[in-house]
Design a binder for these strands. Sequence first.
DNA 1: CGCTCGTTTGACTGGTGTCAAGCGCAGTGG
DNA 2: CCACTGCGCTTGACACCAGTCAAACGAGCG
Lengths: 266, 266
Amino acid sequence: MTIPPEIKSSELAAGQTDEYCTKIRNDRAASLCADCPMRNFNICGVLLGKPLPEDDSSRPKPIWQVQKKVPARRNIKNAGEQADRVSVICEGWAFRFVQLPDGRRQILSILIPGDVVTTTRLFDDTVRFSIQALTEVRFCGYARSTLRAQLIGDAELLEAWASLFIVERHEHFGLLIDLGSRSADERIAHLILDLTGRLERRGIMVDPSFTFPLPQKLVGAVTGLTAEHVNRVFGSFRKMGLIETGKRYLRVLDLAGLQRIGGLPC
Amino acid sequence: MTIPPEIKSSELAAGQTDEYCTKIRNDRAASLCADCPMRNFNICGVLLGKPLPEDDSSRPKPIWQVQKKVPARRNIKNAGEQADRVSVICEGWAFRFVQLPDGRRQILSILIPGDVVTTTRLFDDTVRFSIQALTEVRFCGYARSTLRAQLIGDAELLEAWASLFIVERHEHFGLLIDLGSRSADERIAHLILDLTGRLERRGIMVDPSFTFPLPQKLVGAVTGLTAEHVNRVFGSFRKMGLIETGKRYLRVLDLAGLQRIGGLPC
DNA sequence: CGCTCGTTTGACTGGTGTCAAGCGCAGTGG
DNA sequence: CCACTGCGCTTGACACCAGTCAAACGAGCG
């Protein structure tokens, strides 16, 4: 019997996730940030100044520390690890999850470009869940201490930070409602709608189709279902003409129909 | 057919929850705060100064605005309502919930004395869920604007605030794991353990028994189960000698046994 | 080529939901 | 004081959604 990769990497001792990370040279990193389509979202916008750059004088020098890359299916951080950086995903997808001792796994949230990997890291130095790259992921790490010092007294940054929490909490509530009181069909339809909505808001989605790097097993780990049942629901959605699926790809054919099933009207 | 009270009150137009609230006279409110056993927890401790009072000079004058009372089973706030106060529960239990259009209801968290009712209220002026009193509830409201002004530049308060978020998020993760990947027995055992732990940390629990104002139907609304099934699980726990239940009362007889079922070892 | 992983499908099982009825208690009104 | 009523708890019979187990297929990859 072989050990699946997610378990393999989560069993590493704390602090060892760094070994897969490729650090990007500082000069290249700066130019990557300058062109980053995500720089206008979340805290990046506040930290780097929204109108592209130029007026670097008004804002303190950007406090990027490092840009890193992690290959697909490796853990970015393991639960219990310490960390001194707050990271933002620039490219790629990842997910937060916890692994129960018997092997069951619950995904807490899916992270897309522009998301902050560990929102509470600024105040809480140990991570309470693991994070795994779904595709290859490139991310930027702000130094915790610098960011924290800046947060005190900077109303705009504080506001941005708080709104991260609020949005994230709202996402968690949505998932709680799904898991607690909705059927498999509803959960999956809602997941699709949620992701399409978020991708659109980040300007990542091209027409109603998008690359969908979540294997069905992981869709199950989000929605609390088994891979087999997820497959059946996908099949019935396909038969109903709601979606079209392919290899790491998904297209919404009937948005209204999906919303009728999975909309959260509250 | 009669309308259950939770629906009745949640159907009121926004802004009407105030009508059940009894405002407590300001002079009485001040003395209630001075003696409040919860003043050392959460943000109250930071705002009012932890060592009882006396050195009122160091801290700005307390910014209590009002103390209010709400009778059991009435909504404290309805989803969508606006609010200009951040409230802390001084006495009694309450819960946050959302009501789906078809009547299904999901409880998001249970609030006990010392908990902040609407943690994000400071930055988000509309409430995204409803809050209902489980017992009679007395709570204190801080003015949002004052609190916010104080937050900028006050590192200690900021820290306290952030830790509210972190603790709350941790609770939500626990519930997500329960709902997504654990059985009915596990969920209910975990709920009991979670509540006993929180009550202990707040110094409210007398020996291993405590008043348990959650009717089984609401235990179901937290754990995503029906009242009938909750009843069966309670019955089996009783038969196994794990707990003892009575009218609005619960006693843990076998903590280790409960932990074996519902512990979250992650 | 042979391995593994993800998808797909089928048969069967089982945990929870649903429906229904009875009981006891507390509040309410006569 | 006593009926009446509604609510919460309890139990049983039954149904169904989703889990489990198993097998086959295709794709990627060394």
